[in-house]
Write a protein that binds this DNA or RNA. Structure first.
Lengths: 203, 203, 203, 203
DNA sequence: CATGAATGAGGTTTCATTCAT
DNA sequence: AATGAATGAAACCTCATTCAT
């Protein structure tokens, strides 16, 4: 029992090592230029070891994205658990998002391109990674529309996409250029929320 | 004289053939998976012919982006020429953008990923292609702030980025899923402008 | 320990296989017409394997030359170790050279063209492979001048070059045309030495 | 008649233009790296024009060598016409050779590699370009042996080869390094002849 | 004849993936 | 399970040669 679970735990550790290295290199060089060999080396394993944990390069990439998405989704739900109003939930979503991106720049670098890669490469479009996040945001928008402070004329899916893209856009600029740090996280949050809520407010 | 200009014209036609094929394949498969051979084949030329017009694959890609950006910028400035108020100019910007993306889906597909490619690959970051568009939008935002209907508290650069990202996001959704055609171009335009202007309005 | 050294030994064996095939093909077809694919095939490896041992084609070529030069220089110094007089050393040099060329025809074929390749291709001129041999011969000439049986009026560098070129010329003829075997190695040696020593003798 | 001969003359001029450009580029970059396109450009013709005068790249190369060899052979015979003794003829050969190489460095650069290229590439070995020169020198050696001042024990062919290789070697050094100009042409000539005649002298 | 754009075979090199140890 | 050397397909790019104008 214990022996088995230790084995299991070790396996997870190795997997995590590889994912971490992959995250770093995919962010640094992009999907195509990052090589499995380099990832393995950075993770301090042999090339072949990667294939004991992931079917192929695409699988590694997807697992990486999905793992992080799950983390992020967990944060969202956790941060929201004690909150009542949909407005507060959206506020929490934006704050958690900004914080997560700040702490996980490599991941952000990768996700920033995800939209299109997933469009252009059939292989990845099968597993729409961002979907879960989008669904979550859409549900928040719908709640907000019920509560009456987001206008019902907006397609909740579209409104959700817009909120997400604002979050991405602001993060991109914020994280890319170190200098822009004149605004702190809270100010970024307020700016996004200000524009979004005013923009979609029910009159 | 005439012979020379015909030669020149032929040369441009061939170049355009190749650019068109490249646009299609880059959109379909992405920069790395699209091969020069396939592009040449689609354009009905031999592989080597591509290299008579473009130094290498990166040069072809850049020429493609730059050409289209120039087209788009031309449209913007043309569509705006008779307009006075900055508000109308922004409206024109959004309309022209949506129209252009609708007519040039392949290009849209490519541009949608540009942000990131340019981040990760040094080679392209040299020539920040989208920069000109961004500068143009920023100038519109600044005008609007002077006119007083966009709040001066917003960083015009950031506000511009947000407007562009809304345009991209909405276009993406609109163009990706044919079904969503329940909304026409004008409705998309109104939605974007509604949210943006309300969002950033001076109180 | 043993496992490690066996691995190391295997590595060297493979490297030697490839060098041998390269030597054969470079000699047969010349640097440019010999392809990596053919070299790999002759060595019974896949194309990519060559690149596990050599950075690129130029590196392979250089490694080949340098390895052989080292062998040859080793032979010279070994053959000379028990000898006292500079005259005997030069005699040994010529004999070892003829023997080595006879046993390593492929290498000879390659070296015979080295002069020019190194002139025209910047890439190779960096590492002037023959330089060590030349330096060695020059030192022998200088010793001979001190001993008084080579006239001091000759530039030792030039005299050395001439001796080497005689060795090459005679070898070329001797090895090229099988028929010329009427003269054996010793006769060739005597002819070269006869002309050289008489030619440069101090009066 | 006249029109025809002018045409013929023009044709020869074009041919000469191309040969000159080819000589320059083959010397500069070597046979493989020099491209027909570059040669045509340097000669101020279109690529295809080269093929109106030469069957292919190899043919151009050979024609170049053969033309120059013929020039050189002409010089030898001319310089020798008024001379009686074989010794003087060999002296003239060396002087003319040095002079010709000095005036035709590009050609020298090319010829210096000829030996081997012709060995390794079947296509060129068919037409042994240097053969005529060699035959000429051999005939001089034979005369000298008859006259009694070159020892009859030497194979005249081999002795000739050695004389030629000395000429090449000395020229190479002399022309390669500008600095070495401390010795003038006459001194080079005397050195070569000194060594050669002493070396092969009949006792 | 002259042109030079077009061709496409062929070379070098990379790298995802496999498999014997 | 872990290793990492070996594989070989496939990409980019060059350039000798052809041929329609």
């Amino acid at each position: 029992m214990i022996a088995l679970s230790r084995k299991e735990r070790d396996r997870k550790l190795r997997r995590a090592d590889i994912l971490k290295a992959a995250e770093h290199l995919f962010a640094l060089k992009g999907y195509h230029k990052a090589t499995i060999r380099d990832i393995a080396k950075e993770a301090q394993y042999a090339t072949g070891t990667v294939y004991l944990h992931f079917k192929d390069k695409g699988d590694l990439y997807l697992a990486l994205l999905e793992g992080r998405i799950k983390d992020l989704l967990g944060l969202f739900k956790e941060g929201v658990s004690s909150l009542q109003s949909p407005r507060q939930k959206i506020e929490a979503f934006v704050r958690e998002g900004l914080e997560f991106f700040e702490k996980n720049r490599d991941f952000f670098q990768i996700i920033a391109s995800e939209d299109v890669e997933s469009l252009s490469e059939k292989r990845f479009s099968v597993s729409p990674v961002g979907r879960q996040i989008k669904d979550y945001v859409v549900s928040l928008v719908k709640e907000s529309q019920k509560s009456g402070f987001i206008d019902k004329k907006y397609d909740p899916f579209q409104a959700g996409e817009i909120l997400i893209s604002m979050l991405k856009t602001v993060s991109m600029e914020w994280l890319q250029k170190e200098k822009n740090k004149k605004m702190n996280l809270e100010q970024q949050q307020n700016m996004i929320l200000g524009i979004f809520f005013n923009g979609v407010a029910a009159k």
